[in-house]
């Protein structure tokens, strides 16, 4: 493993983040605050407790997941798409590094950024509602795994994308609906029976459910299933990336 190269890519990617730090910091704080004002106070005050949890607190795990998933994908996809767009990806392709090192650098940095944003949102949320975290280790594990797996997915999207429009396509058309319909703002038990079954095909349900369990000790699906789902998703992404570098799909003529 060429750790110097991994650290080099990681640092260069993080440098981009620090260059736009204020924007990276303010934007999630602002949007989270808005969610709390709208859903937590204005509407939430009229909603009863969900599964014994005050609605304002109930939506926190979903809110964190929404931001973390979106940020991971956009950071990682942009991170690898940008050198492809500019053309300086030649440097990465001609360097003595393998796919694991490239991915560790790019996806690692993207995951770090979204993890930071996730923490910022949690801190912001704690200003509005009382947050209890019953299983802190599981909470961190879910958060880190989500950041990592969706950064890997973002990396794949960045390699697949042929232009900036496509770069936005998957996050906009696939990820956002999946996250919104994945129980971020409601419990699955609130849905009609048919939809309760259909919604189980949405992978985000498992993430949100497991993450929420870490906070409140209650889950829509078994926690182990949630862990398996996110673990399987991570492995699937790694396999796709391995294949991409092996065949050179969209990166090496």
């Amino acid at each position: 493993m060429n750790w110097t190269a991994v650290a080099t890519i990681y640092k260069a990617e993080m440098a981009r983040f620090w260059r736009t730090f204020l924007q990276s910091f303010i934007s999630p704080v602002l949007s989270t605050s808005l969610y709390f004002v709208v859903f937590g106070s204005a509407i939430g005050s009229r909603i009863q407790e969900v599964d014994g949890v005050e609605y304002g607190a109930f939506i926190v795990p979903g809110l964190v997941m929404l931001s973390v998933i979106t940020q991971s994908i956009s950071n990682a996809s942009f991170g690898i798409y940008f050198p492809k767009f500019i053309g300086n990806i030649y440097e990465i392709l001609s360097a003595p590094i393998n796919f694991l090192e490239v991915v560790a650098g790019f996806a690692g940095a993207a995951a770090t950024k979204s993890l930071f944003i996730g923490v910022v949102i949690l801190c912001t949320a704690s200003l509005f509602v009382d947050l209890s975290i019953q299983h802190p280790v599981a909470m961190v594990a879910f958060l880190v795994l989500t950041c990592l797996s969706f950064s890997l997915m973002g990396f794949i999207i960045g390699i697949w994308a042929g232009n900036f429009e496509q770069l936005q396509l998957v996050p906009l058309l696939v990820v956002t609906p999946l996250v919104f319909l994945g129980g971020s703002f409601y419990s699955i038990s609130m849905l009609p029976p048919v939809w309760q079954t259909i919604t189980l095909f949405n992978p985000v349900v498992y993430l949100v459910s497991g993450f929420r369990w870490a906070f409140f000790g209650q889950a829509d699906v078994p926690v182990l299933l949630s862990l398996c789902a996110i673990g399987g998703f991570t492995l699937a992404c790694m396999a796709v990336i391995w294949w991409i570098f092996k065949t050179g799909w969209r990166i090496r003529a």
Binding site: T4, A5, A7, T8, F82, Y90, P96, I97
Partner: peptide
């Protein structure tokens, strides 16, 4: 390798991008 096209990230600084290249080669 010095490529034919000028392919450089516009926002980075000269010293940083050259240092990056060295690190990339381990």
């Amino acid at each position: 390798l010095v490529p034919q096209e000028i392919t450089l990230e516009p926002f980075t600084k000269v010293l940083d991008t050259v240092t990056f290249s060295r690190g990339l080669f381990g």
